[in-house]
Simulated scan of single mutants.
Amino acid sequence: MAVSTRTARPITGRFVLVTTIAFFAVVIGVNMVMVRFAITTLPGTEVDSAYSASLAYQREIVAARQQNERDWQVQAHIDRRPDGAAAILLEVRDHAGAPLTGMNFLARLERPIDRRADRAIEVSEAGVGSYRGRVDGVAAGQWDLVIEGDADGRRMFLSRNRVLLN
């Protein structure tokens, strides 16, 4: 039987120093990579200033009550085409069912999880009480359709709906 003549290598101060430095270098390197991923993939905040948003909250409540009192009927139809373009059609009527004309509408497609993908849609009047708009480069998936209607420089209508575009 052969006996091994190898002796155990002693743990020296240099070995402890090198392994400790290597350990912390790996930990710091992994942390730096994770911080980089976190910063580059963070879409941002919902509002830039929570304080400013809280001050505007009461105005939003008053505007929502006024919108409910107007009792407008706004029907929105949105389609995504195979080329990635999205077309929107708005049919706008007042409380008596008469078409509303002369309004300025703006529509936005907002990604629920990434503000960087939001798309604005220019909407123009296409007929009596009918408004149309189109935007290119819309990806399939879930979107929030935000519709704002202004008259005489004052917001008269606001709607936010979750839509699924295929």
Rank of each mutant, 00 (worst) to 15 (best):
V47P: 04
S49C: 13
F23H: 08
E122W: 06
R119N: 04
M34Y: 10
A139T: 09
T41N: 14
R155Q: 13
I28M: 09
A8L: 13
E60R: 11
W72S: 06
L109I: 09
G44W: 05
N31T: 11
P99Y: 05
R93W: 02
R93D: 05
T12K: 00
Y57Q: 15
A38H: 04
A140M: 05
D118E: 04
G141T: 01
N161V: 08
M103A: 10
T5C: 03
E46Y: 10
P10A: 09
V47N: 08
Q67T: 08
M34R: 13
A126P: 01
A117G: 06
T45P: 06
A2Q: 09
A107S: 13
V92D: 05
G127H: 01
P10V: 11
R162P: 08
R59T: 12
A117Y: 09
L100S: 02
Q75P: 00
F37G: 06
D150Q: 12
I61G: 03
A107C: 07
Q73I: 14
L145S: 00
R108H: 12
A56N: 11
D79F: 01
V47A: 08
Q142E: 12
A64Y: 08
M34S: 08
T7H: 02
W143R: 08
A53P: 00
R160W: 00
F24V: 11
L106Y: 06
Q66F: 05
R80H: 04
N68T: 12
D136R: 10
H95P: 08
R132H: 11
R160Q: 11
D83W: 02
R70K: 12
T20Y: 04
Q66V: 08
F157N: 00
A96V: 13
R160P: 00
N104R: 13
V3C: 03
E122C: 03
A151V: 09
G44S: 06
W72T: 07
A126S: 12
A120R: 11
V74F: 01
A98I: 04
T45H: 10
D152R: 09
V47S: 10
G153N: 08
L106W: 07
D79Q: 12
L164M: 14
M103H: 03
R134S: 14
E110T: 13
D79G: 03
M156H: 04
D83P: 01
A120M: 10
R36T: 13
M32N: 13
D83Q: 06
T12L: 00
V18D: 03
W143Q: 02
S52H: 12
G127L: 02
G44L: 12
T7C: 00
I147Y: 00
Q75A: 15
Q75C: 00
V30E: 07
G149E: 01
V26I: 15
G133C: 03
P10Y: 00
E69R: 14
D79T: 13
I21S: 15
A8E: 11
M103D: 02
A96D: 10
D136S: 13
E69H: 07
Y51P: 05
Q142R: 14
A87R: 12
S124A: 14
L165C: 06
G149W: 01
R134K: 15
E60S: 11
A151Y: 11
N166W: 02
R14F: 04
L158C: 03
R162Y: 00
V128C: 03
A25T: 14
A117N: 09
E60Y: 09
R116F: 01
R14E: 12
D114W: 03
E110G: 12
A25Q: 05
E122G: 12
T7I: 07
M1A: 13
L165F: 03
